[in-house]
Structures are given as C-alpha cells and as structure tokens.
Design a binder for these strands. Structure first.
Length: 482
RNA sequence: GGUGCGGUAGCCAAGUGGUAAGGCCCGGCUCUGCAAAAGCUGUAUUCGUCGGUUCGAUUCCGACCCGCACCUCCA
C-alpha cells in the first residue's frame, strides 16, 4: 500500500510512487541557509521530511533524498564579513553545526547534500537557457531577471492571480516594491543573477553577464534537476517557501526545460509556533537545539515533540511538550522492555528496525503503520502505538506474537526515528554508583530485612541527600540517581 | 483586499454520517512495612456559535464569532 500525502499543487492527497515500478524515488528538500544555528522551526520541517523518507524506505521505495545547503546569500555574506572570515570558512562552520544537530535528532543524512556555491556553473547554464528562450533579461547593472509574464501558468502552485501580482506595489512588510530601482520590467520579476556590488566583498563569480552571484531560487532549480533529472518525484519545504520560492522554481525550471512537470508532488509542512506565538527573534522564543538542551531537554524528546503534531497543522511548541514527550518515550521503553523479556532478549538487542526472522511482521502495530501511511499522520500513529502497547502487555500473549509485535514496533519506531534505550546507554558512565552510596544502600537494605524500618527510612533520607534513591523490590533493590 | 488553515477534556492532540484514539497531568485500585517503581483503572452526554440537510452530525451545507499563517528572497 503506497504512502499517501497531500500535494500542494493539486490540493489533494496523492499516493507517492516512482514513475516506473522499482525506479528511484527522487525527493528534493530545500535545506538550511547556514549563517547560524538552525532553530527548532527549521528542524520541524526537516524532521517531517525525515519521517517521510524513512516511511518511504520502509515501504520499499528506492529513495534518493537530496537536500541542499544554501551557502551564499545576503545573510551569509554579511555575517562572514562581520566575523572577518571567508564565506567558505564561515558557512563550513555552520554546516558542521547543522550536521551535529541533525545527528543528535537522529535524522538520516540525505543521499546528496549539494552546496549552492559549488553548483554555480549549473545555475549559470540554466540562466543561459532562460535568456536564450526569452524568459529572462539582463539589466543595465549586469543582473539577470526572470520574466514572469513569459510563464503562462505562473502562480499555479500558490494559486495566485498574476494580474494582482503585477499591480501589487507594497509587500507585507510595508516596504515599497520599486521596479525602477532594480531596472526590473515588472515588480514580480525576480533575480536569477545578481550583479556584483561593493558590499559583496570578495564574494563574486564570473558569468556571461559579468561578475556577481546567483539568486536564491535558481540554486534549488539547478541542483534539484542536476541530481534528480528535469522532472522528479517530490519537492518539499516549509509552507513559507510555497511562494515565492517554489513558485519561482517551477517557473524557471519548466521554462528552461520545456517540461511541465518539474516536480510531481509538492510537500509542504506547516510552521511551528512557540508558546502560542510566531517564532521571532524579537519575542525571544527562537529556540535552537542547544537552547533546549540547556533547559534540560534531550534531543530524542525534542524530536518526538516536533513530530507529534500533524505536519499540515501549526504545532505549538512549549517546554512542557518536550517534558510530555520524554514521558511518552519512557512509557514506550517500559512496554518494549516487557516485550523483549518475553522473547528472551535485552534492550541491547533492540535496534530499529529490529531484525527478527524475516522482519516482515507488523503484529499489533499494523494499524499504526497504516495510519502513518495515510497523509503521514504521526499523532494518529502514535496513538495506535500506545493502544498496541497496552495489548502487548497481555500476559496471555504468546512468544510468537511478542516477536511479531517487537518486529512491528521496531519498524514503526524506525519510521518515526524514535530510538529506545539511548538514555541508559548515555547514562551508563554517569550512573556509576559511588562506593559510599553503594555501602549505604546495602546497609539500608539489611536494616529493612531486619525490619528496622525507622533506620531504613533514615538511611533513605541520607541517600537522597547524596542524590540517590533506592527502588525496592521483593527480592532486592536498585540504586538510581535522582 | 487575495490565498489557505484551524477552533475537540486541565494541557497537547487524532478521528468518524450512528452516540468521541492516544500522550502528559490528576484521582482510584493492586502491589508494598511505608514509599517509589510497575501494572490495572477512572475522568468530554460532548467536539467555537447559530441555523439547515438527515432517522441520526462533532463529522455534510450555510451564516457568524474567534485565532493563525502566507501574499517577493523567513523551514
């Protein structure tokens, strides 16, 4: 059963299938502009794409995931100059940080991660095609603009009316769109190539139109078609990219190639809100992963919190949602541990996707998988996971059923990118029990066995002062850090 | 003004033309010397408001109220 998700172009839910059975499934996602640490809003989008990719792979598709790095624009240039380092060193630094955060959030690396700067020749080649085809023109300063009126179905993605576009003279920020200032023929025309300006410093490249740098939109068109072909399967990004970025990508790509189906499917995810408000620097609610970790959050819990809402709905992110997520993960771990015990396995054996027998079984987790396949309904799937987990706790469950359930759980958690038992591994070193604590624990246990409850309780108080507590069972106890 | 989305329990969040998944929190029970942990279990006569269609609507239609996003380089 193919995975079905919403397509922005047709405004409908469509199955995700390669053009021919067995063919590679090409998905292109607009990546980050590396001028600082990415914030959790960026990661929500990348995380949703990561879940989609994992699900597609689990469904048997040969996915080729391409996600670019935008490493030249006003912000990267301005910041690198401010720090007095080269653009290359500057963007390398933040690309590295981005990768580290992605790893922490358990995101699969894209198969190809092209840099915009390294693909300037491809961009120039595409611009040349557009100029030759009458879709672009050079202005007096050596810039090149895309001629929007040469593209008859411009606006088809965002469903915008071209006439209103051309007459619009202010943007949402209230600033005036002055066509004359840029020598543009129309305010809706956009830059393909930006002529070199003094403020660019050393950051310019040669082109048939003179020195300069590429416009933002052309980067993605050139890189996506270079790695995935002139028409490919799916293009994704945050909903804000729908217009103008994706609209412009469609226009320039289809005008350059002459083909009308640049991307077969447009996959957009809704924005993240923080504490009920739009994220913004001025509100001080623009969290990075490091910010959250500093507040005590763990990356797995952040991942869970960020994917726990449906991708087409705005998600209101709060610190409490991360705490709730940590509790939910712990609950899954407990139930998984029981299943593992039933099968005679240990948490160390659980590495999604769990390979048991042929690993084809879904067990009680089939409903969760089916829900995920239905427009990537992560919150619905999570609900079905917990329902299945309750059922799996039934003492009457056979080992055979437990193994099937474990296989299904491993697969659905793989799709969601939720790793279990990571905290224990990390804490193994940190939780080393100091000898005095161990001695005190043993003494308390002995007192308790001797029914000296007052003494035992007193020693429990001492343990707590040392930051430890004793979890007693019938046959023994375990010391854990508070 | 244009385009689009949403209002479901204390919080978060699915879903369906036939009388509301799940998570967090909270309550109860079991277990326990007491706790903790763990397991079980309980909590929306109700799904923004008002109409309409229907045997029946939270789910379809209309109106309204409220909130949100995008509208030229923000994921």
């Amino acid at each position: 059963m193919p995975i079905r998700v919403h397509d922005t172009l047709s405004r409908s839910i469509k199955p995700l299938l390669p053009k021919q059975p067995g063919a590679e499934y090409g998905m292109y996602c607009c990546g980050p502009t590396v001028y600082g640490p990415a914030h959790i809003g960026n990661f929500r989008t990348f995380l949703v794409q990561d879940v989609l990719r994992r699900a597609l792979q689990l469904d048997g598709l040969a996915v080729k995931h391409v996600r670019n790095i935008t490493d030249v624009d006003d912000k990267t240039i301005r910041q690198s100059q401010a720090e007095k380092i080269s653009l290359k060193d500057f963007t390398a630094k933040w690309t590295k940080k981005f990768h580290a955060d992605c790893d922490a959030l358990n995101m699969l690396a894209p198969h190809v991660e092209p840099s915009a700067v390294e693909h300037i020749p491809h961009q120039i080649a595409m611009i040349e095609k557009l100029v030759a085809g009458g879709h672009a023109y050079k202005t007096g300063d050596g810039s090149v603009y895309f001629k929007v009126c040469s593209c008859h179905d411009y606006g088809k993605l965002a469903h915008l009316d071209r006439d209103s576009l051309r007459t619009q003279d202010t943007n949402s920020a209230g600033s005036v769109n002055d066509a004359d200032e840029y020598e543009r023929e129309s305010v809706s025309d956009f830059a393909l190539w930006k002529a070199r300006k003094p403020a660019d410093g050393e950051n310019f490249w040669p082109s048939p139109w003179g020195e300069g740098r590429p416009g933002w939109h052309i980067e993605c068109s050139a890189m996506s078609t270079h790695y995935l072909g002139e028409t490919f399967d799916l293009h994704g990004g945050g909903i804000d990219l729908c217009f103008p970025h994706h609209e412009n990508e469609i226009a320039q790509s289809e005008c350059a190639t002459g083909k009308k189906d640049f991307a077969a499917h447009w996959f957009h995810s809704a924005h993240l809100m923080v504490d009920g408000a739009k994220m913004s620097k001025s509100l001080g609610n623009l969290y990075t992963l490091d910010d959250l970790v500093a507040k005590g959050a763990t990356p797995p819990a952040v991942r869970y919190a960020l994917i726990a809402g449906h991708y087409r709905s705005q998600l209101n992110f709060t610190l409490k949602s991360v705490e709730d997520a940590a509790g939910a993960i712990a609950k899954i771990e407990k139930a998984a541990t029981k299943l593992l015990e039933k099968c005679g396995l240990s948490p160390a054996d659980f590495a999604p996707p769990v390979v048991l027998e042929k690993n084809t079984a879904w067990g009680a987790f089939l409903p969760a998988w089916e829900t995920l396949c239905d427009d990537l309904n992560v919150p619905g799937a999570l609900g079905k996971i917990f329902t299945a987990l309750h059922a799996a706790n039934d003492p009457a469950l056979t080992v055979e059923q437990a193994r099937a359930d474990l296989s299904g759980l491993g697969k659905i958690l793989y799709a969601l990118g939720i790793r279990l038992f990571t905290a224990k591994k990390d804490a193994a070193g940190a939780d080393e029990i100091p000898t005095e604590v161990a001695a005190l624990g043993a003494k308390r246990w002995a007192a308790k066995q001797a029914k000296d409850f007052a003494g035992a309780d007193a020693m429990r108080g001492e343990l707590e002062k040392l930051g430890w507590k004793s979890l007693d069972r019938k046959d023994g106890y375990a010391l854990v850090k508070l």
